[in-house]
Design a protein around this nucleic acid. Structure first.
Lengths: 162, 162
DNA sequence: CGTGATCACTTGATGGATCAAGTTAGGGTG
DNA sequence: CACCCTAACTTGATCCATCAAGTGATCACG
């Protein structure tokens, strides 16, 4: 333990604020979605990603990456969403190892129904309380952190088609 | 659903970056602490809070608030930490409804042993990749978000005496 | 001073996340 | 074309957070 570089007052303040955000913001988002749509934020992300994909279809592995989750977690979640009739699974004809997840009509309707409320929550909690420059700063800060946490991160900002 | 105000390109980018941080940063922090100290980030927070308190003691309810957790969650966690010999519980002599959590010698040692590694991780992941102005911006942005997510938040930045 | 309400906490059950194997499909090598 | 190795999942067990209900201490009020 060679001389830990402690945090300055300002760094500590920034860190404490961030930790609170890390805990409270996801909780608030989940609460809104759970209350208004009966789904978790992760489930929403999965449905939303599919809704913006060509053919409303994605490979499980790509989906896991863009939704920030492990493949195992995604598999469980998709099982549930499949039971609810919002997603269909099928083997990839091009390569049988891949599984394709496809949004059903019902799944599409679910996204359409729950998106406005979610966007509104994002606005209320994050975007609106910030100034325009702060939104830009937040984007830059977020990307910098991501680059060190997960250097080979999939698409931190540039949502290029896989 | 009256005309949802959609997000601009820049807002969307900021939001996507933030969501990724919300998922990946806690995971990275937990991984470090779990690997190097065998405890979760929440457990670390509890121990650390106690270590900086007078008498190394706090009421459960105050502890829950400053550590960003529900009382129920804290109760379970403290039970585990008590079993590991790091915390002791006792009724508050001043008011029997309160329970005081006190850090034991072993608990103190645990904090001392794991703090440098944790601070180092915080530096690596968050502080060091940012410029000095960005650290300040992060603090301000974080506080603004907290004020809307949880308006009566306990101590968003001003760590005044409990 | 006793009765009901409230507060601080605990406990048990439920649901979801994580981890470790297991399974199936393709690619590579002789 | 047999063999093995890896890649993309899936599944089951375990752990933890959350929710609901319960307990005991104190306060308010008559």
């Amino acid at each position: 333990m060679d001389a830990p570089r402690w945090l300055t007052e300002e760094e500590q303040e920034a860190w404490m604020a961030l930790v609170s955000v890390l805990v409270r913001l996801p909780a608030a988002l989940d609460r809104q979605l759970q209350r208004d749509a009966g789904i978790s934020h992760f489930e929403y992300q999965v449905l939303a990603m599919l809704s913006t994909s060509p053919e409303r279809t994605m490979r499980m592995s790509d989906l896991a990456e863009t939704a920030d989750g492990s493949l195992s977690r995604l598999s469980h979640v998709v099982s549930r969403l499949e039971k609810r009739g919002w997603i269909r699974r099928s083997p990839d004809p091009a390569d049988g190892r891949y599984t394709l997840a496809t949004l059903t009509e019902g799944g599409w309707d679910k996204v359409v129904a729950s998106a406005p409320g979610h966007v509104e929550a994002v606005r209320d909690f994050v975007i609106d309380p910030l100034t325009k420059p702060q939104v830009r700063q937040l984007r830059d800060i977020g990307r910098r952190i991501l680059n060190t946490v997960d250097p080979d991160g999939s698409c931190p900002g540039s949502p290029a088609g896989r």
